[in-house]
Nucleic acid binder design. Structure first.
Lengths: 103, 103
DNA sequence: CGAATCGTTAACCACATGGTTAACCGTAGC
DNA sequence: GCTACGGTTAACCATGTGGTTAACGATTCG
């Protein structure tokens, strides 16, 4: 669902993880270093990203490799695109409409 | 902040309101009819949208007119665009990388 | 003026979220 | 085999979120 994507991205740490994974797959340790929270906290964020389908996990030996699942994030981006198209088309009209109405 | 935009859009009712406002400004009653929650609940959602700068309010008589503030939502959309650009460029590589590594 | 309308504020409640520490599990390396 | 490493699970806690009902405030209309 689109809602899940936005929820997943609504936390800065999770968005940070997604940004790093945008540069390529990485282990949990590498993808999540430097956020200043404990490992269990990271683990929970990863669970959210995985359950919403934004991130995929592949266990290899003792390392867990993470990578993006673009399709799901694409749904959210599509919603954004649609909204932006509306704004672009209507913002000026909207603005004028408001000014007119207040006369 | 970008974070606020995502938070604002992470709730289906708030996203529904934004969608309606995408078609033009509307009063609180019109923009929020049919969501199946009480008026105070609506009021809180509007507060979030307003505080994050996604929605603008203009009080006119006893009616409150709402309209979108595209600039703020644009920040979130930009973030999305950047991520998508990364995916587009790197998804195939990422995929290949994973397969290679598991040999 | 009095009543209806549009919307907010206040007080409260249940549950989700995000963090912690402590303990654990599976794999890798000496 | 034992220890170190990468990461998760369990239990707990504080705070935030999203909803409710009740009451109120301001504007419009008869």
């Amino acid at each position: 669902m689109v809602n899940d994507s936005f929820k997943a991205l609504s936390h800065p740490i999770r968005r940070g993880i997604v940004e790093r994974l945008g540069e390529g797959p990485a282990t949990v340790g590498d993808a999540t270093a430097g956020f200043g929270v404990s490992k269990p906290a990271i683990s929970k964020h990863l669970k959210v990203l995985e359950e919403t389908g934004v991130v995929r996990r592949e266990v290899r030996g003792r390392a867990h490799w993470l990578s993006l699942e673009p399709k799901v994030l694409g749904e959210a981006a599509d919603w954004m695109d649609r909204q932006r198209a509306l704004w672009g088309r209507l913002f000026d009209v909207v603005d004028e409409y408001l000014k007119e109405g207040s006369r």
